[in-house]
C-alpha cells in the first residue's frame, strides 16, 4: 500500500521536474547571441530595443535581433558602434533611414508618405461608424413610421400594455 503511494509520488516528482525543464527550455533560445560589450545596462537596453525595432533588409519580416543574414550582422555591429559613440536613438534611426528608407523601421516614422499607413485604419473605422450610424437611424425612423405614434403616444401605449399584463 505504502509502496504504491511512494511510487506515485516519485512519478509526480519526475513529471514536475521534466515539466519545469521543458518550460525553461525557451530561455536557452535567444535569437542571435550578443557578444557586444556595453558600459551601462541602459546602453544594452537601447541596443536590444533598436535591434528589435529595426528590420533586416535582406531577410524580410525578421528584425535585426532574429536574423542571421550578413547585412543584419553588419547593422547590429553599426548600432553597437553608434551607441558606444554616444549617438541618440534618433540619430541612429536617421542613419538607418538615409540608407534603407522607411522599410528599415517596424514602426515607420510619421511622414507625408506614411500618413495613410498610420491613419488609414482610423479612416476606415470612421467610415464604418458613419455607415452603421445611418443604418441604425434609418431603422429607428422606419420603426416610428410603421406605428405612426409620437413619443407621448408611445408612452401612453406602453402604459396601457403594462396595465393589461
Amino acid at each position: 500500500m505504502t509502496g504504491s503511494f511512494r511510487r506515485e509520488r516519485v512519478t509526480w516528482r519526475f513529471f514536475l521536474c521534466s515539466l519545469t525543464l521543458m518550460l525553461l527550455l525557451p530561455l536557452l533560445v535567444h535569437g542571435q547571441v550578443d557578444t557586444f560589450e556595453f558600459d551601462t545596462p541602459e546602453q544594452q537596453a537601447r541596443f536590444r530595443q533598436l535591434s528589435n525595432e529595426l528590420r533586416c533588409p535582406m531577410c524580410q519580416n525578421t528584425n535585426l535581433t532574429g536574423s542571421t543574414g550578413g547585412v543584419a550582422e553588419d547593422l547590429r555591429r553599426e548600432v553597437h558602434r553608434m551607441i558606444m559613440a554616444g549617438m541618440s536613438n534618433e540619430e541612429i534611426e536617421q542613419f538607418m533611414f538615409e540608407r534603407y528608407g522607411d522599410f528599415i523601421f517596424y514602426r515607420p516614422r510619421l511622414r507625408a508618405e506614411t500618413v495613410l499607413l498610420w491613419f488609414g485604419p482610423l479612416i476606415f473605422l470612421i467610415i464604418g461608424g458613419l455607415v452603421a450610424y445611418s443604418i441604425w437611424r434609418r431603422a429607428k425612423a422606419s420603426e416610428q413610421a410603421k406605428t405612426g405614434l409620437d413619443a407621448t403616444e408611445r408612452e401612453r401605449l406602453e402604459a396601457l400594455l403594462r396595465r393589461e399584463s
Binding site: 547585412v71 553588419d74 528608407g101
Partner: peptide, 13 residues
C-alpha cells in the same frame, strides 16, 4: 570585407 561601404550604399545583398 566588413560590409561598411555596403551599408553606406544601402546594399542588402
Amino acid at each position: 570585407e566588413s560590409g561598411r561601404l555596403g551599408i553606406d550604399l544601402g546594399v542588402y545583398g
